[in-house]
Amino acid sequence: MSLIFRLAGPGSRLGPQILRQNCTRMLNAVRPVTMKCEPAVPDKNESHDERNMRIGRPQSPHLSIYKPQLTALLSITHRATGMALSAYVIALGYSAVSLQLPLDHYIEQLKLMQIGAGPVFALKFLVAFPLSYHFFNGIRHLLWDTARFLSIKEVYATGYAMLAVSTVGAIVLSGMS
């Protein structure tokens, strides 16, 4: 829009009641200003990244500056556990088709090795914790998706509850045989 808002000098149009009381003092503060409206520059068709690069803005939140918060930590852990579980499932599938003997043979071998209760607990924990965490936090995610527990207070409360339940769950599961 090629349009110029010419704003006249002081005193040309003393209108509104706001100015009535303190006219003179206000007027001293008034300066003639010329505002020029130019055609709106259309947004560059660029991605979030491209824009950040162009204006030299770092990725937000800047992780080495931003204070770690429970919300962000639980969120990234959900992603990490999801990735870990995916890796396990992919490994299970690939080993099932690529190993020379059926998979149960190798489980049997592991049994015969008698690696001790501690290492077995640790091994199971490596599976149980990601599963337990992802399972219970998954419930939390699904509840959010139905627009529940979304206030900051509830997000923290369910966060701590999930952490407790999934940790206890993982320990109990790892101790089972």
């Binding site: 489980i107 592991l110 049994k111 690696i115 001790g116 209760a117 199971k124 089972m176």
Partner: peptide
Amino acid sequence: DFWSITGT
């Protein structure tokens, strides 16, 4: 099967 391992 895997979970039945006790290591003992």
